[in-house]
């Protein structure tokens, strides 16, 4: 299988002259096509930074990042924009929905940007509406939605253009347990049926247990990783909790 993500020796340093803080150090990461990878770690461990680098929203200080075989560091601003909307679907922690557009229009955004014919756009929303349970709210505005509905809308928008890679930043962070389970089921469905490659940052061991592999970050370095293999979700959940206990201070973050 092909590698969707390949990073070698990626380092990210914030700040300039004098006050410098290192967010990521020497990250080597490979994600294969069809994997559902979770990234965990305490606050400040560099999870979101890594995700932003992969989403091309942020630039690394040094190292190599290849997504779907393309080196993203040498791209121009224009190429990056095109890359972002064609190859990547991003589910943001704070939804990133435009409050001036209806749910349907928000979901349509990536398709409209790549100038998809309207018939095709209608068809795809129709397809996705039931999968994410948003048919009833298509004509509503984001301000009229609950957190779960917003998160599902954001997820729908991330996958509508059938990107090679879906990046999710704490997608269940703001959800009640029922909504969280629904969303995770949807993501798992995408991964299993549509062979979508998913990379998800999360605090939540329960959410991580849906993944096929979980990476643990600490102080900007890859700490360890867990592979689910043939284990059940419950068994994998326990293993994740065990690793989190090793973090010590990280226990608080689990809850």
């Amino acid at each position: 299988m092909k590698n969707v993500i390949e990073t070698t020796n990626v380092t990210k340093v914030y700040g300039a002259k004098g006050i410098v803080s290192t967010a990521l150090e020497h990250i080597d990461l490979t994600v294969r096509e069809g994997e559902f990878v979770g990234i965990m770690g305490p606050s400040g461990s560099g999870k979101s930074t890594l995700l932003n680098l992969l989403a091309t929203i942020d630039q690394s200080t040094s190292g190599d990042i290849r997504i779907d075989g393309t080196d993203i560091l040498g791209m121009s601003e224009k190429q990056l924009s095109t890359f972002r909307r064609e190859k990547i679907g991003f589910i943001f922690q704070d939804y990133n929905l435009l409050d001036t557009l209806t749910v349907k229009e928000n979901i349509w955004l990536p398709l409209a940007l790549s100038r998809t014919p309207i018939g095709e756009m209608e068809r795809r929303v129709d397809e996705i509406a039931d999968k994410f349970g948003i048919r009833g709210i298509l004509d509503k505005y984001p301000t009229q939605l609950s957190g779960g509905q917003k998160q599902r809308t954001a997820a729908s928008r991330a996958i509508i253009a059938r990107p090679r890679l879906i990046l999710a930043d704490e997608p269940t962070g703001a959800l009640d347990s029922k909504s969280a389970t629904d969303l995770l089921d949807s993501l798992q469905g995408l991964n299993r049926q549509d062979k979508a490659t998913i990379l998800m940052v999360t605090h939540d061991a329960y959410a991580a247990s849906y993944c096929t592999r979980v990476l643990f970050l600490k102080d900007g370095r890859l700490f360890t990783e867990l592979v689910k293999g043939d284990a059940t979700r419950q068994a994998f959940f326990k293993k994740v909790l065990d690793v989190l206990n090793v973090f010590g201070g990280g226990v608080n973050d689990v809850i």
């Binding site: 929203i57 924009s81 909307r85 943001f92 929905l97 955004l109 990536p110």
Partner: peptide
């Protein structure tokens, strides 16, 4: 903030 969202989704600066 809205334009930041659009940038994240892949709208170019020119657009």
């Amino acid at each position: 903030s809205r334009y930041a969202i659009l940038r994240n989704i892949g709208v170019s600066r020119r657009e």
